[in-house]
Simulated assay, not measured.
Amino acid sequence: MKQISVAAFVPPGEHATVARAAHILQAALGDEGAELACATVADFDRLQTATPGTIRIASLTPELDQLDTPWSEVEARLRQNYAALCDSGDTVLVTTIFRHIGAQRDPDRAEALLVRIRRLNLLATELSRAYGLFVVDLDRIFSDVGAVRVLTDYGLDGQAAAELAGHALALGIVDNALDAALPFEAQERVKRAITASQPAIRPAPDLVPGNLMTMGKGRRRQVVSTITDSVQDNHVGWLIRQVLKGQIPPRQAADKLIHAVRRRGVQESLGLLTSGMVRLMGLKPQ
């Protein structure tokens, strides 16, 4: 039986999320002859020294314990840590933080907390582009549902929060981390099984476009479409750079590209490859 290892560095409040994700994954993987071994680790160093081949998951929430530390120092440390973590070549997933802080007695702390959460969430996307890690955007998912319905805040306390976050994390692992363990067809079956078991509280994906944002209030409220840089494009460019630097074997990069072709089709995959090459050369398509 194929064993898939996962190590997660998350605060105690998110242990239930990891446990729920592991439960969902194991239920779907069992039919494919695979077994999941999931463990939480006490600190980032132990995540980095996990056994080669381990899927590594990190939450940014522990960084909220250091609000008094200047952001420049936090950012520099995180960039250094995640660069080293991604150098292993194993899949790394980072979860964003739900931007709801609940009632706070100290308004200054509340403001500092919100600013730090926004900066950390933005940094997650920048780390993805720089080092090729994958982002599980819990902030977007929880914002779609709303704090009132989930009865939680950035700490993700409560059963409903664990259900919602665990399901999102399980999907993130299936989408990005199982290429070395399962063939494409098996991954698709696992994904369908997990998608079918999504929490009732989560809105259907086609009802929540990912590129929409609300601006203004009241009668001036507008929903606009945003055009953003594609993480997929950057990930292809990152793969090419890693091969050229000798940090990823060409075979491993080729396997990932083949998986992308199977998942997205030849036409879209060629577009991603072309875009990745353009970014690698520092050019902008006309």
Rank of each mutant, 00 (worst) to 15 (best):
I141R: 00
N234R: 14
I117M: 08
Q286E: 11
L127Y: 09
T226D: 03
R46N: 07
A8W: 01
S197P: 07
Y82T: 04
N234Q: 10
P70Q: 11
R116Q: 09
G102W: 13
A253W: 01
P183N: 15
H235T: 00
A260G: 03
V261Q: 04
G246M: 07
I240K: 05
R99I: 14
W238A: 05
E35V: 10
G276C: 01
R79I: 14
N211R: 05
K245T: 12
S88T: 15
V10T: 09
E188G: 01
I201P: 03
A130N: 12
I173Y: 01
A260L: 09
A181Y: 13
I4K: 00
A253R: 00
V41W: 06
K256A: 08
A76I: 09
G158W: 07
L122C: 11
Q267M: 07
V6F: 00
L36I: 02
L133K: 03
H259N: 12
M1D: 06
Q26I: 08
D65L: 14
R241H: 14
K217V: 11
R262P: 02
W71H: 08
G33A: 13
Y82S: 03
Q3F: 13
P199Q: 02
M215T: 07
V278M: 02
V266F: 08
L113E: 07
N176A: 12
V148H: 12
L164N: 04
F142V: 04
M215Y: 10
V224L: 15
L29R: 00
Q222G: 04
K191Q: 12
K217F: 06
L164G: 08
A28C: 03
P209A: 06
I4D: 02
R279P: 10
A260F: 02
E63Q: 10
W238T: 01
R79L: 08
G271T: 01
P249C: 03
L85Y: 12
I248L: 15
E75M: 08
L156Q: 07
G89D: 11
A170L: 02
V145P: 06
G218N: 14
L273D: 00
Q159W: 07
L239R: 06
P285Y: 00
P12L: 06
A8H: 04
D68W: 05
Q48L: 15
K284V: 14
R263V: 00
D43K: 07
D139V: 13
D153R: 05
V18H: 02
T96M: 07
E63H: 11
A39I: 10
P12I: 05
I97S: 07
V223N: 08
T274D: 05
I258Y: 04
V94P: 12
V18T: 04
F9T: 04
R241L: 14
E126Q: 13
G216E: 13
